[in-house]
Design a binder for these strands. Structure first.
Length: 991
RNA sequence: GCGCAAGUGGCGGAAUCGGCAGACGCGCCAGGUUUAGGUCCUGGUGCCUUCGGGCGUGCGGGUUCAAGUCCCGCCUUGCGCACCA
């Protein structure tokens, strides 16, 4: 290796010159020390150079930016962070944690020769952006764009190696053109549950035109039995709405008057409030846009097996989808045409069903209750003191409708209900069982009705106990099971036979299968699957979102705006604020702000459908902010493409399925493809991550993308918490103004704010706890490289950990020592020597290379930094640092602290950026030691140590150890055994 | 209540297979540089100790020559779900 011995700065290098130093440094004896000011100059200079040279531009194989010669046969790597919302408050030090981690990972892989795509855009539509605008009295476009400028500056200051050409924002018409286009793809599709997919699975999205053709030709019967040709456009539209993947329906939706908009189930907390703003949410019947995500429930659940995600997040998604196997069984109502359909996961316990329960909202409830008084012999406890079943049911339903979700919950396990006065027939044994209404059965799950089996279900047991209902055990409880409790475990079926079928003696699984077969054969029921997942409510009564590319004709039929007319631009309006109401006014109705813009709403268009120019009304709802984040990662791949949302070749290159499936995938699983590494917070586990998977699968079915999953590997990073302080009233006080008072007797420090004592806690960084630490102030006080190294050294990425500003100096000292190993602090000269490495240094260097190149790909940045510090400290102790060691160390530090690495790399005589310098490779010969310290134990406790050759034989080692004086002394009474694990350990066990 | 994850120095955290517990950093202690403070540098730093050693990875048991690591029971904290039939 031949390098200039002295730095001769290349003309274009960003290298800081002597004359750039600050006045106070000229007074000092170490004017060339790596200080915060020095770091600042270096960092800004290199950020400029990166931008000028397009250092992080990733070549595409196809599309407008095609550079196939630069792509070559390099392996690709797509590394992304979750789409950030450009907050008006700016970033705090918790935000960049993930961004820095992906950057280190991306930079490391560039040094291994991969074609790495890493970039970041802005999720700029949506409620928070709009609320911020309303608060500040400015148009959301203005505030959002201003926020993006601030955030871009903050991110740039951190030295993130993003391909800046690919920075997109959801609010750009060029972007939301394609969001609307994808919406129309979904609108114009239906889910054919019987269609065979190329991968052999069953069920996929197909164009709606194909369905229309099948209806028209008679190949597929029109639901309801009508003849397609004779249906009116409105009737056809209604039929298709039952098939489309995006459709309007009149259904109970989540209405938050305080927010002025409806919300999806995923945006409502389980205590019935809005996730954003914590407003009460009410169920109201409204015509709204829905997405048929339920069609994909199975694939969304199954395909989790093929992605590399945290188990916790997979569990959360599976839980949300809530798939359970069971059976539907019909119970005919006595003296009535109707049957009550129930869903049960325990059809094996049918013989133990002793009563039934309907949800208060169940449509049959009203007609079930017989006119007149209570049936003969009705238990007084069942009547709630009402004179008749109809009165009792009406009173109960009214009471239930007035209860909020919270009330239903806080009432806990105390079951309430009333008898409807009706009986139904248990199909397996002909027994007539009473039918109740009770709010422990939920309308939103299964069929909204259950068969109650108190012997095998705790909830039913509680209800039966309270209302004195019979209990029939149909599963033999295990020995010692209390008599007064339901038995939900495994056991042999008992009391379960009729003239045709007997389950007695069967285990649960066999009994289920047997009874389902019998029910199916008799036409009384069938095996089925039930899901918790509901269709996705997709409209919002908000201004700041993508307009729907939909117009309604005078009959009220929805029509897609033709692709050629996209985008449907969001009109600029003077009044963009949503109409909000008293948060508790459940009778209020949403009013979309776009509805106020008459001249935008009423249009005359030729949709190109042969009907010529006609009058239409535009859809005035807007899309939820999830729309933009459902596909942004695809746009990164080809942001300048005007012919397609992404060129298929670019999608296949960056995201296509890989040869080998992820670790842990089932045997023989096909790889789904997707982003190679996706890092973001776990708060999106069932929102963004589920919605994006759904859209991706639709796009896959329609042939637009080759990958089946958007995010092949997802990693959820922990949060950074910061100390927060409260005064005696419990009010947070400004954390930066708190003074620590050390306890001199060795106890814990106490804290004061403006002289008064305050208590400390650790919490989420933010305005509400007044504990914001901004990356800007860290960059100013220490430099971006120091901030990066500190954040990456705090601990494992997945853990939440406390921020400690005073500990940041440790990272700075490391970089300062690194600098000093290369640059003379007094003269600024490069001080490395062109001398060969001594043996110890060579070994230390290669051990570090080995460890670090195992840590970087597994996101073990904290341990990588520890090893780099060790090596750096070892070099510090040498009289002079050999060039080879310095250069390799600089290259290894570059992913973590890229600016100082670039500067040192340049001063060491390299003209090219260090970004693509090859990562050092460890020499295996230098990883094996000649001699090893052997630990000598007596009964498992360390008693001595011994330097031995690494290749020593077991016998020789045993002999040497037994000859040691300490061992001799310890084994005077004789030896029971000697365990030898050559060369590292010998354990002697005396008698 | 159910499910999952985690409990290691004063603090953040290290520790492929069961094989030297506490890497690295903060803090703290001592020394050096400095008029002084800070910065910076060097060294030390689990606890106890009669200086032999003893005790130590939430608690109690077990397996093993050997346990932070494996098994059983419990406690605590965090997260998720929460009448889902």
């Amino acid at each position: 290796m031949s390098r200039p011995g002295r730095w001769t700065g290349p003309a274009r290098a960003a290298t800081v010159r002597h004359d750039a130093r600050r006045p106070e440094d000229t007074m000092s004896e170490t004017p060339h020390r790596y200080t915060a000011q020095m770091a600042q100059q270096i960092e800004l200079a290199w950020q400029d150079r990166w931008q000028e040279e397009g250092t992080f531009h990733a070549p595409n194989p196809a599309g407008p930016w095609a550079e196939p010669e630069k792509v070559g046969d390099r392996e690709k790597l797509l590394v992304l962070d979750m789409f950030p919302y450009p907050s008006g408050a700016g970033l705090h030090v918790g935000h960049p944690l993930g961004y820095i981690a992906t950057d280190v990972f991306a930079r490391y892989h560039r040094m291994t020769g991969k074609n790495v795509l890493h970039c970041l855009g802005y999720d700029a539509f949506g409620l928070p952006a709009e609320q911020y605008a309303v608060q500040t009295g400015q148009h959301p476009r203005k505030t959002t764009e201003a926020n993006m400028v601030v955030m871009k500056r903050q991110l740039r200051r951190l030295g993130l190696g993003h391909d800046d050409r690919r920075t997109i924002a959801t609010i750009d018409p060029d972007y939301y053109t394609w969001t609307q286009w994808i919406f129309l793809q979904i609108f114009n599709s239906w889910y054919d549950a019987d269609a065979v997919r190329p991968d052999g699975g069953v069920g996929r999205a197909r164009p709606i035109d194909e369905l229309v053709q099948e209806f028209a030709s008679g190949a597929r019967p029109v639901p309801g039995g009508a003849d397609w040709v004779s249906l009116s456009p409105l009737e056809r539209s209604a039929v298709l709405d039952d098939f489309r993947l995006a459709y309007t329906s009149e259904a109970p939706v989540n209405w938050a008057p305080g927010l002025g908009t409806v919300l999806s189930n995923e945006e409502v907390t389980n205590d019935g409030r809005s996730e954003r703003g914590n407003y009460p949410v009410f169920k109201t019947n409204l015509r709204q846009w829905m997405m048929r995500i339920t069609a994909y429930a199975d694939r969304l659940a199954d395909d989790l097996d093929r992605v590399d995600w945290p188990d916790k997040v997979k569990a959360m998604q599976r839980n949300w989808i809530g798939r359970s196997q069971g059976a539907r069984v019909a119970f005919p109502v006595v003296g009535h045409d109707a049957s009550i359909e129930v869903f049960t996961t325990r059809p094996d316990t049918l013989f133990g069903a002793t009563f039934m329960v309907l949800a208060p909202e169940h449509p049959l409830v009203e007609s079930l209750a017989p006119a007149g008084g209570w049936p003969e012999g009705t238990n007084a406890a069942w009547t709630a003191g009402e004179p008749s079943p109809q009165a009792a049911v009406a009173a109960y339903r009214l009471a239930a409708s007035r209860k909020s979700e919270i009330e239903r919950q806080t009432e806990g396990k105390d079951k309430t209900g009333v008898f409807t006065g009706a009986f139904a027939t248990n199909p397996v044994n002909g027994q007539q069982v009473p039918v109740f209404v009770a709010d422990y059965v939920l309308m939103g799950y299964g069929t909204g009705a259950i068969m109650a089996v108190p012997a095998q279900d705790e909830r039913d047991w509680d209800f039966a106990a309270k209302y004195e209902l019979p209990v029939v055990r149909t599963v033999q409880p295990s020995e010692g099971h209390p008599e007064d409790q339901a038995f939900t475990g495994e056991g042999a079926a008992i009391n379960s036979s009729n003239d045709e079928v007997s389950l007695d003696g069967m285990a649960v699984a066999e009994a289920k299968a047997t009874i389902i077969d019998w029910l199916s054969a008799k036409g009384l029921g069938e095996g089925t699957v039930s899901y918790k997942l509901r269709d996705w409510l997709f409209s919002r009564q908000r201004y700041w979102g993508e307009p729907f590319p939909i117009v309604f004709d005078e009959d009220g039929v929805a029509h897609a705006v033709p692709d050629s007319m996209l985008p449907v631009e969001l009109p600029d309006v003077p009044d963009y604020s949503p109409k909000t109401f008293d948060p508790d006014d459940s009778s209020s109705q949403p009013e979309p702000p776009l509805g106020r813009v008459q001249e935008w709403v009423d249009v005359e268009l030729d949709l190109g459908d042969g009907r010529g120019v006609r009058k239409y009304r535009r859809e005035t709802n807007t899309m939820p902010n999830w729309a933009g984040s459902c596909w942004y990662y695809l746009r990164y791949l080809d942001p300048a493409n005007h012919d397609a949302f992404v060129d298929p070749a670019n999608e296949a290159y960056w995201m296509g399925p890989q040869a080998a499936p992820v670790a842990g995938a089932p045997e023989g699983a096909k790889d789904p493809g997707g982003v190679d590494l996706y890092i973001g917070g776990v708060e999106h586990a069932v929102l963004h991550l589920l919605y994006a998977r759904f859209w991706h699968k639709v796009l896959h079915d329609l042939g637009h993308v080759s990958s089946e999953e958007p995010f092949r590997k997802y990693f959820s990073q922990g949060y950074i918490q910061a100390p927060a302080y409260r005064d005696h009233r419990g009010q947070p006080v400004e954390a930066s103004e708190v003074v620590e008072v050390p306890d001199h007797s060795g106890g814990e420090s106490s804290y004061t704010w403006q002289g008064q004592p305050v208590t400390r806690e650790f919490g989420k960084i933010g305005k509400s706890l007044k504990n914001v630490v901004s990356p800007d102030e860290m960059c100013e006080q220490y430099g971006a490289d120091t901030l990066r190294v500190y954040e990456m050294s705090m601990g494992p990425l997945e853990l939440s950990k406390p921020w400690e500003t005073r500990a940041v100096v440790g990272a700075q000292r490391f970089l300062q020592r690194l600098w000093r190993n290369v640059v003379d602090e007094e003269t600024g000269e490069v001080r490395v020597v062109d001398a060969p490495l001594d043996d110890a240094t060579a070994r230390a260097l290669h051990r570090t290379i080995d460890a670090v190149s195992r840590d970087f790909p597994t996101l073990g940045f904290n341990t990588a930094i520890a090893r780099l510090i060790e090596l750096n400290n070892a070099l510090t102790k040498l009289d002079a640092v050999p060039r080879e060691a310095a250069e390799k160390l600089v290259v290894m530090v570059a992913p973590l602290a890229p600016h100082i690495a670039e500067e040192l790399w340049s001063r060491l005589g390299h003209e090219e950026t260090v970004t693509y310098a090859p990562f050092p490779v460890a020499d295996p010969a230098l990883l094996v030691e000649d001699t090893v310290t052997c630990v000598v134990q007596v009964k498992g406790k360390v008693r001595d140590r011994l330097e031995v050759p690494a290749d020593i034989s077991e016998d020789a080692l045993r002999e040497q150890v037994l000859a040691l004086p300490k061992i001799q002394a310890a084994t005077e009474g004789g030896i029971r055994t000697v365990i030898v694990r050559a060369p590292k350990l010998v354990n002697v066990v005396p008698l």
